[in-house]
Amino acid sequence: MRSFSEYNPIVIAVWFLSVTGIAMFCNYPLLMVISLVGAVAFFVMRNGLSHGKTHIFFWVLFLILALANPLVSHNGKTVLFVMNHNPVTLEATLYGLNSAAMIIGVLYWLRSFTQIMTSEKLLYITGALSPKLSLVLSMALRFVPLFGRQSAKINAAQTAMGLYRDDNIIDDIKGKSRVFSVMVTWALENGIITADSMEARGFGTGRRTQMRRFRFAAADIAFLLTELGLLGITCAAVGTKSLSFVFYPSITAKAPDMLGVLGLISYGLMILMPMILELVVNLKWKYLRSAV
């Protein structure tokens, strides 16, 4: 029994894409609320109460985004008050709130996505699209810390050879740029050696295969199918005006029909899927442990 983050990266990516995609391209307020609440719950479930800074940043941004629209856009019939000779309307305010909920919800989703989709998983996905690009990416990824370590080494070597003569800012800046220059030379020359090593091991001689590290298990397929089913229903609801909500010139919303309600429920379920999975896993472990 695996937890959600251990599922096949493609399954994970499709799930994130559908959840954020629906949130981004639909403006139905109830859907936004579901997305935002789901996103925060998902993030908190994974990280507990840490990451306080992230939360503060997102909610401050929420306020700014919510307030920006009524101050800039003056569409809408219901004027709340007039500021600097410009009317501030109820519709624009609600619209701003709705957009802010959407954006912050999506930002929360993406934060979780970035946590779950480690580089190795992303390389697996890009590798399916373009093995060459994926290789360049993976190499660059390896180079970043390598260059960091090399810079530190170069800096140490230069210090110990007495190349920093005085202890002042100008000398420091000179030293830093010298280190950077040496590092770049090293990086380029070393890159050539890496390239040689690749060719020596047959790179570029023909079709490449990829050693799969993530298999498609039955659970992956089941998850994917359920998820696509739910996505289909949601899309149908969003696409066929079953869930329509008009802000301008004045707010008109009709009660969602059968399909609309189904769509909302599907979206909610879709968001709950990994959390349910996590719950089941936890219960199972508990059960197993008590059985031992």
């Binding site: 993976s138 091991r201 490449r208």
Partner: peptide, 17 residues
């Protein structure tokens, strides 16, 4: 060439298809 031990081992064989 690569960042993981398993991938480094696989690299040559991947190239040969």
């Amino acid at each position: 060439v690569t960042d993981k031990v398993w991938h480094e081992l696989a690299f040559g064989l991947e190239n040969l298809g």
